[in-house]
Computed example of a mutant assay.
Amino acid sequence: MTAARSILLAVLALGLLAGCDDPPQQPRGQENLREVKPPSGPEFTGDVCVVVRNRAPFTITGRVLMKTRERATFRLARNETRRLCLSGTTYGNYTVSFVLTNFVTIPLFSCYTTTEQAIEVFAYQRGDSWLYNATCR
């Protein structure tokens, strides 16, 4: 193989890799929500409690996180409700991070939400998979 051909193959490989950085975005509602950027705004440091209600037809697991990395995990059976309390600093606009996970703790759904009202979790079957939704405010 000539040096010129090796360089050409390397350039093509880099071009293909660079094209894989940003996958195409699907319209909201077509897949499970995964918020990655916290909202901007005022923060709060102190005790925070959040109520989580499972409206899915099966057991769910997840966690509530604060900006200062405090976390509370939960496992809720169908129609079960639990109150989780944490002490730390919230994200912007007085929000916490809410994450639904599978049984090996891989995130399936996430959002930033206030703790003023209960977070209700719903699951809807679409084909062979499930779509998750929560009342994040």
Rank of each mutant, 00 (worst) to 15 (best):
Q30K: 15
Y112E: 13
T135I: 04
S97F: 05
S40I: 08
R71H: 11
F74N: 14
S129N: 08
Y91K: 07
T59M: 12
Y91L: 13
A118I: 07
P23W: 04
L100Y: 10
R126T: 06
D128Y: 07
R82L: 02
T81G: 00
A118Q: 10
V52D: 04
V11I: 14
R78F: 06
G29K: 12
V52N: 02
N133W: 09
N32C: 15
R126F: 13
V121E: 03
T95H: 04
E43L: 05
V48I: 12
L17G: 06
M1K: 15
C111P: 07
F74V: 01
T113H: 09
T101Q: 02
A18K: 05
F122G: 00
A13K: 03
L12C: 07
F74M: 03
G62Y: 01
C49W: 08
L14Q: 09
R126E: 13
C85K: 01
Y112L: 14
F98T: 09
P42Q: 03
V48H: 02
T114I: 07
N32W: 12
T89P: 01
Y94A: 05
N79M: 06
L14N: 07
T115G: 06
Y124F: 14
V50E: 14
C20G: 05
R5I: 06
I7M: 09
R5S: 13
F122S: 00
V51I: 05
N93K: 14
E35H: 10
V96Q: 10
S6D: 08
Q25C: 13
L76N: 12
A56I: 01
A13C: 14
Q25T: 14
R78N: 08
Q30R: 15
L76T: 05
V96Y: 04
P107T: 04
L17T: 07
F98S: 06
